[in-house]
Amino acid sequence: MTEIRGDEEAFRRWAGERQLALLRTALLLTGDHHRAEDLVQDALTKVALRWRRLADGNPDAYARQIIVRDNISGWRKRRRELVVAEPADRGTPDPASGVDRRLLLDAALAALTPRQRAVVVLRFYDDLSERDVAELLGVAVGTVKSQTHLALKRLREAAPELADLLREEI
């Protein structure tokens, strides 16, 4: 019983330290706060189930892998059901505004496939190496490279206002 309590405390300590970072990753992957919370909740539960095996290893990587893979699987199930109405015309977004910049980024990320989005988030937000991303996604390093290239190209196409602004800021 003492051992279980010790496990629980250690898990809670780890989860307390890492859950915000995992939630932010999940939000960037999904663009939906509720969906992101669900993904993190499920991932933490799966880490908790294996805590004794993971505690001395890399629970962060395991949790991140669950979030990414569950998100891709979930997206497939939702894709055919999701019907998005045409948004009302809100005028041209202004990239200098923080709110518009966020909307532009959300729209650009939404133009990516789930795997391209995962590559972008893992490489540029979580700062993982190409090799680590390849391992997490279960693909070859060359695929990560090609997907990164494609994703960045599509991001620029989807949000030219954002790309232009950034060029000016350089």
């Binding site: 629980e8 898990f11 932010r24 939000l27 909740q41 880490v47 908790a48 937000y125 954002l162």
Partner: peptide, 24 residues
Amino acid sequence: RELLEERVADVTTIDLGADAWSRA
């Protein structure tokens, strides 16, 4: 990187760890 960080900078979370342990 900066754009992605800015996008989630104001995200806060409730404690999901306790509930996860209970569910496990």
